[in-house]
Design a protein around this nucleic acid. Structure first.
Length: 724
RNA sequence: GCCCGCUUAGCUCAGUUGGUUAGAGCAACGGAUUCUUAAUCCGUAGGUCCUUGGUUCAAAUCCAAGAGCGGGUACCA
């Protein structure tokens, strides 16, 4: 809800000739710099201060009539500002009281000094209005605590909860420090594709999307792995990427669908070199950013003191439950051993599960939850690692490790598989596993194989979930707490909180306000199809050329083509008269009867077109406007003529028929000879051109035109068109 | 996907066994105040109790369905 009193203040500011939204403000100090200057002074405001210019958001205010204390906050932190009528003048203080609300931004020019009570402050000599806030800040003491609000309106969380600000600052510093460390150790940062044609680099389900121009389905990457290894093949000996990845899978506190992974690869290293380097990197990050190797997450204390144990998965499981999977060579034997130990795995489809998956499930059940302090879990079974190098002594396992802490997998690393024949065999095994019903397998990647066939150096690398690590180091148990704007379902404009982006419904032709049809009256597909009404469009979503091409493809009957072209002309004139987007309005006019040649039934007319127009990219509100001109035929869908644009399309399409009919009865049959007076007369003569729907023409009122003015506008536009 | 929980003023929260006109603090508005820092004091205004339907003489409260969010679990690496 926009605050009425704030709007009134905004108006008062404007009325006084002051810009409520300033263009810029020259700062000399951040608030913390200014505060530190003041703090360094003697404890008395009489002491000569430093002149400063600062700016920030007004967070608190304590007014004593002629003396006013406030706290400003900028990116550095907070500082108290004192507005003393004896210094800035009584007018200035009064203006502040009348104009400034908590949440506004102001600039302050003054001198640093302490107050009588010793608070480091800035004594204003002048202040400047910088930006008016129309909505209030959250509670000033307790901040914003509602979890959903904190995610939906993260800016409020950031403004009012210092802990949130610090956490996201930490994330920035973490990534920055990691980049610096990698840069300092000979790594080069690259960017590889997010939009790709093949699922590659990990075992996960992708998000799918459509590439229109190339007419093909694409996927968003689940990992940058194979691209980075191709970089190494190309001669980047050490390479890394801070890679946004997308996995279309279940949500949980430890899984995001849209997350950041850092991956690096180093030529000539194996996974043991990798572990050594990783221990150094992580300790560097922790030491430089936290200053302690003890991290508290909830009740759990995690100790990063090195060296971190390196334990094979086989030993971990053996220790935890006495099962040695190395002696159990097939899935059934392992299943029997698990059953014999009365261990209950909760996963589904256990009886069909492969040996590798069973080992993985067993590890997750009996071992991983107990791993609190960092551990390198090494030597995974080969089944689950199609891109990792198999062990030279034991081909059933791979040279791989995961860094685990707090029960979370933080890093996944291996000696990379660079043998193209082995890699091809692994891919083929994946493909046959898929054939056997395992959905999450890697498809054969011929491009990647080809690269490997050209020769890759031995190498090792890893991927780290940035959110997981940052969450761990900031003591959070949910990754959303370290994601600035996590994905949330949109709220439809509920009562008291209307959708700010939707245009208000325009008055109907009779001048009474209309209401949007109840959503439940529309079928789901129609609702999706028709979109929300709008009074104007910033962008039709479809160029004139593209619209013309559709028009040529769909509309063949000459009279219909003429009618639609004329409607476009009238729409253009209406847009000009209203100062609306002429190009967009013309497109709507040209396309409004797109499917009329193909669809004759009134209850389907416009629906077929709507589908095609949506596919072509036309703005949903434009589709709504076009469909609304047949709202009688489409009444079952619940669509109604609501916005200015809706009314405009109806009026334009109908008036064209009246003008045409009127000009046809003239001796010359030329629209140039048609007089407005006669057009008006024929409008009111019901028998004349009876199938021209007069009530549609009257919808011009809903687009802001008097009837007669609208007829004049349409006539003039069509006459101008016919001469040109 | 399934199970459980939460949703009351812009924010933070009360609200008894179903019972008068749904309350408080902050924020807002009016007033007092030249050293406050969660300022204080006096006064005013602010509500679709998430939505819809039901039970009842009576619903924020009970029931049902739906929405959003959270937690668990499964799928999934």
């Amino acid at each position: 809800m926009i605050d009425e009193s704030r709007l009134a203040k905004l108006a008062a500011i404007r009325a006084a000739g002051v810009l409520p939204y300033a263009e810029r403000y020259e700062r000399t100090h951040t608030l913390i710099e200014a505060r530190d200057l003041a703090a360094a002074q003697a404890g008395d405001q009489a002491a000569a201060g430093q002149p400063v210019r600062v700016a920030g958001r007004v967070l608190t205010r304590r007014a004593f009539g002629k003396l006013l204390f406030l706290h400003l906050q900028d990116g550095s932190g907070r500082c108290q500002v004192v507005l003393d009528a004896g210094v800035v003048g009584e007018d200035s203080v009064a203006r502040f009281q009348a104009w400034v609300d908590l949440g506004d931004h102001i600039g302050v020019e003054g001198d640093t000094a302490r107050t009588k009570k010793g608070e480091p402050s800035i004594w204003a000599r002048d202040w400047t209005f910088l930006s008016k806030a129309l909505r209030p800040l959250p509670e000033k003491w307790k901040g914003l605590s509602d979890g959903e609000a904190r995610q939906r309106e993260r800016y409020l969380d950031l403004v009012s909860n210092p802990g949130t600000r610090e956490r996201f600052r930490f994330r920035t510093q973490f990534v920055r420090a990691m980049r610096r460390y990698l840069d300092d150790h000979g790594f080069e940062e690259v960017d590889t594709p997010v939009l790709q044609t093949k699922v590659t680099g990990a075992l996960a389900r992708p998000f799918r999307t459509q590439h229109n121009a190339m007419d093909m389905e694409c996927v968003l990457r689940i990992a940058p792995e194979t691209w980075l290894k191709q970089c190494v093949a190309g001669g980047f000996d050490r390479v890394y990427e801070v890679a946004r990845c997308f996995r279309n899978e279940g949500m949980s506190p430890a899984h995001l669908q849209d997350f950041t992974m850092v991956e690096w690869y180093a030529a000539y290293w194996n996974y043991r070199d990798n572990m050594d380097f990783t221990e150094g990197l992580i300790l560097h990050l922790i030491d430089s950013l936290l200053g302690t190797r003890l991290v508290q997450v909830g009740d759990v204390r995690i100790d990063f003191t090195p060296p971190w144990p390196r334990v094979s998965m086989r030993d971990l499981i053996l220790d935890a439950c006495g099962i040695d999977y190395a002696t159990l060579v097939d899935a059934d034997a392992l299943r029997a051993a698990i059953a014999a130990k009365a261990i209950r795995l909760e996963a589904e489809g256990l009886d069909r599960m492969s040996r590798g998956n069973l080992i993985d499930q067993l590890y997750k059940k009996v071992s991983r939850p107990a791993l609190v302090n960092p551990v390198f879990v090494t030597d995974h079974p080969i089944d689950l690692s199609p891109l990792a190098r198999s062990n030279d002594d034991d081909p059933a396992r791979v040279d791989r490790y995961q860094l685990v802490a707090n029960g979370w997998e933080l890093i996944n690393a291996y000696s990379e598989l660079v043998d193209p024949l082995d890699q091809r065999a692994r891919f083929e095994q994946q493909v046959s596993a898929r054939g056997a019903g395992d959905e999450d397998t890697l498809p054969l990647d011929e491009d990647y194989l080809r690269c490997m066939e050209h020769g890759m150096p031995p190498m090792s690398g890893w991927g780290m979930g940035v959110e997981r690590f940052v969450a761990l180091l900031t003591g959070q148990d949910n990754l959303r707490e370290v994601t600035l704007f996590p994905l949330l379902k949109p709220l439809d404009g509920g009562p008291g909180e209307p959708d700010d982006t939707a245009a208000p419904p325009a008055p109907a032709a009779d001048g009474k306000p209309t209401e949007q049809a109840p959503a439940e009256q529309m079928s789901t597909e129609h609702r999706a199809l028709l979109g929300a009404p709008a009074d104007d469009l910033d962008d039709a979503g479809l160029s004139w050329t593209a619209a013309r091409a559709l028009f040529d493809e769909w509309v063949t009957t000459p009279s219909l083509r003429r009618q639609m072209e004329h409607a476009s002309v009238v729409m253009g004139a209406m847009a000009r008269a209203r100062g609306a987007n002429e190009a967009a309005w013309r497109v709507l006019g040209l396309l409004h009867n797109l499917d009329f040649d193909r669809v004759k039934e009134p209850e389907r007319h416009c629906l077929v077109a709507a589908e095609a127009l949506r596919a072509a990219g036309l703005h949903p509100a434009g589709i709504h406007a076009i469909a609304a001109h047949n709202d009688k035929g489409l009444s079952a869908t619940g669509i109604r003529c609501l916005s200015v644009l809706d009314h405009a399309v109806s009026a334009a399409e109908a008036v064209v028929g009246l003008v045409h009919a009127s000009s046809q009865v003239l001796p010359s049959k030329d629209v140039a000879d048609l007089k407005l007076k006669s057009l008006v007369k024929r409008f009111h003569k019901a028998g004349f051109a009876a199938n021209v729907e007069r009530d549609l023409i009257e919808r011009c009122a809903g687009a802001g035109f008097e009837l007669e003015a609208f007829l004049a506008l349409a006539l003039e536009a069509l006459q101008a068109e016919s001469v040109s």
